[in-house]
Design a protein around this nucleic acid. Structure first.
Length: 637
RNA sequence: GCCGGCGUAGCUCAGUGGUAGAGCAGCUGAUUUGUAAUCAGCUGGUCGUCCGUUCAAAUCGGACCGUCGGCUCCA
């Protein structure tokens, strides 16, 4: 027997006989520690506690509290769920059951889909399996053996998976009567699971391919402690309260109507105010940064979309409208319109970069199942711009646009976003060379700005690579906000030119970019980000004035009139109600400030201020309050 | 689009085959009110739509529409 040297934790070095198992090793030290282990890590490799250690090195203990340990813990829970399902429904075929952020799922091929009540039944069986504390053991089989094993069991999906594995052997994990193909590692036994819950049922295509079999997916989550689970479930409930689909209509920010059709948004007065603030802000910022506003029509000839390539590459998202036997298209993008304006006169290199900005309303056909409140709709308005520049200006223009995007996101309180670089997709136009060039230009900009980013292979738009900024909604789902896309193709298709200093005509390069992405989506994210409690500069109603009795209405109106002259958005609540009632309603409506006026205030010519965040702030003179409002509006907090 | 859930008053929800209910909101009146809900009365619904089963349908079945959770797809 070979001796191996293992280093545990703080320089604790010891010799062991090779083949010692992780569990035995930990037991050598302290039983209590060993009990909390879900796996060990040897030289950065996660291993089951039951795996014999053959080589020396640094060992660390992994518990369910570690991110890696939690992953193992949840993965084992998903196996327990699969075992429970197989016990209850022997005809069901198992497929895959990985962990995801905050939990796990398992996909089953089941003729009759699960109904919600069945989750309880499955949970009950899972609890029994956990109580039985079945040992989970790892077996290594050759591919042939594993295929034979699963063929005999009729588990055709597992057979397919094994066939696709590019190794000689595969590992299986066995617990009681259930064996799952899995890389592992796993918990030593089923009894380790302390708290779990099955959350939802969903359909999911086998291998994510909509042409393949629809499977039944069960999502669940597991935590090392009951408290952890409870806390998580509570967090989900709280997040649901911030859902823009609930808050938006309740606060009068937007509506959808069955009668009008899905995926189209209406803005009632309060929503229109918010929208206007956003639009005004964007217009001002764009003018400041040298953009020129343009406005282009919504209904354009089909032919234009042939030239642009949209009819070939974007057809399934477009609405075609017949007009006097000619085909028209409801614009899904603003670019062809901007290109036409660019082309409407001779451009000189001295004019470049030319930056056209439009609040461009576009319509895209989205499958009914993907529509989602304000975040995914069929008609939306982009803060869209197209930058026409010379090749040598490309790096700088991308960088500028990117900085602009970051600035805008920060202004609205978004700091927790991440950046993605998307490369050439399967369906694309333009040469590989041109794609390469554009991708490098984007990367240069990102490197220069020293931002961390992820690369999303094959996720670019058909006309060019792009940088995206992703925001998260209250439930942690990601949505694309800002996007910056390079395009070498449209200039070519529309034969765009500019007169260069060498006296010849050159081809400009185009950058498409939207910073909010769309007003709809951005507003949805904003609502959730602030939980409906907008900072003063964005709040549709900034101040509500509450007269104590009708004796005080006149004074309240005087105060209101004064505030109005300063452009403050306010309402006076003249209803015959108690002050507590009015306060409650203003608070529920998330109005930033309330002004309460009664005899006292009239006598001293003051107001009483109550803020949404701090509550009663006492009496002050109006001028002081106005100053404060202005300061807060200026700071945009 | 696919799989599943849901759809009763403006909102939140009760109502399992026999004459549609509650709370909040709204309206009217009383009350004149001081920092998160004053009291009373009243209005309001072809139970998402259509078709079917039945003597009888909010309730059972089907189709469609909308919506929610996923999948696929994208600002």
């Amino acid at each position: 027997m070979k001796q191996i040297e293992l280093i545990l934790g703080e320089g604790l070095k010891k010799e062991f006989t090779s083949g010692i198992k992780g569990m035995e090793l930990l037991n050598e030290f302290e039983k209590k520690i060993a009990k909390s282990a879900v796996a060990i890590k040897l030289n950065d490799k996660l291993l089951d506690l039951s795996v014999p250690l053959e080589e020396g090195g640094t060992v660390s203990l992994i518990t369910a509290e570690d991110p890696e340990g939690l992953d193992i813990y949840r993965h084992s829970t998903s196996h327990i769920m699969a075992q429970a399902v197989k016990d209850l429904y022997p005809d069901v075929k198992v497929t895959i059951g990985p962990t995801v952020e905050n939990g796990f799922y398992y996909d089953f091929d089941k003729l009759v889909p699960f109904v919600p009540e069945e989750l309880e039944k499955i949970e009950k069986r899972m609890k029994e399996i956990i109580k039985e504390n079945l040992p989970i053991t790892r077996k290594v089989l050759t591919k042939e053996e594993a295929i034979k094993f699963y063929t005999e069991q009729g588990e055709s999906y597992k057979v397919e998976l094994i066939q696709d594995i590019d190794e000689e052997t595969v590992s299986l994990y066995e617990q009681g009567n259930f064996t799952d193909l899995c890389r592992g590692p796993h918990l030593p036994s089923t009894g380790k699971i302390k708290a779990f819950k099955l959350l939802k049922i969903a359909g999911a295509y086998w291998r994510g391919d909509e042409k393949k079999q629809m499977l039944q997916r069960i999502y669940g989550t597991a935590f090392p402690t009951k408290e952890g689970l409870k806390e998580y479930l509570h967090k989900l409930e709280e997040a649901a309260k911030r859902d823009h689909r609930k808050l938006g209509p309740a606060l009068g920010l937007y509506n959808t109507f069955d009668e009008a059709g899905p995926g189209v948004i209406f803005y009632p007065p309060k929503g229109a105010i918010l929208r206007t603030i956003l639009e005004d802000f964007m217009k001002r910022e764009h003018y400041k940064k040298g953009y020129d506003m343009v406005i282009t029509p919504h209904l354009l000839k089909g032919e234009l979309w042939e030239i642009s390539g949209h009819k070939d590459y974007y057809r399934e998202n477009m609405y075609f409208v017949p007009v006097e036997e000619q085909e028209y298209v409801l614009k899904p993008m603003n670019c062809p319109g901007h290109v036409l304006i660019y082309r409407s006169k001779v451009r000189s290199f001295r004019d470049l970069p030319i930056k056209f900005f439009e609040l461009g309303t576009v319509y895209r056909y989205e499958k009914s199942g993907v529509l989602h409140g304000l975040l995914r709709v069929r008609g939306f308005t982009q803060d869209d711009a197209h930058i026409f520049c010379q090749e040598e200006q490309l790096d700088e223009e991308i960088l500028k646009a990117f900085k602009f995007a970051i600035e805008v996101n920060h202004t609205f309180g978004f700091h927790d976003f991440y950046v993605k670089l998307s490369t050439k997709p399967e369906k694309y136009i333009g040469s590989d060379e041109i794609w390469e060039k554009a991708t490098i230009a984007i990367r240069n900009a990102l490197e220069k700005e020293q931002v961390e980013y992820m690369i999303d292979e094959g996720e670019g738009v058909f006309y060019g690579p792009k940088i995206d900024i992703k925001l998260r909604d209250s439930l942690g789902r990601e949505w694309q906000g800002s996007t910056i896309q390079v395009d070498f193709n449209l200039p070519e298709r529309f034969d765009l030119r500019y007169a260069a200093s060498d006296g010849k005509l050159h081809r400009p390069i185009m950058i498409h970019r939207a910073l909010f992405g769309s007003f709809e989506r951005f507003t949805g994210c904003l609502i959730e980000h602030y939980g409906g409690a907008f900072p003063l500069w964005l709040a549709p109603e900034q101040v509500r004035i509450l007269p104590i009795t009708d004796k005080h209405i006149d004074y309240a109106r005087q105060v209101g009139a004064k505030l109005s002259t300063y452009g403050i958005r306010l309402e006076v609540d003249t209803r015959n109600e108690k002050t507590g009632y009015k306060i409650r309603e203003a608070q529920v409506n998330k109005i930033p400030y309330m002004i309460i006026v009664g005899d006292k205030e009239i006598e001293y010519n003051t107001i009483s201020v109550r803020s949404r965040e701090k509550g009663d702030e006492g009496e002050m003179v109006l001028e002081k309050f106005i100053e404060r409002l202005f300061e807060e509006i200026r700071k945009k907090t």
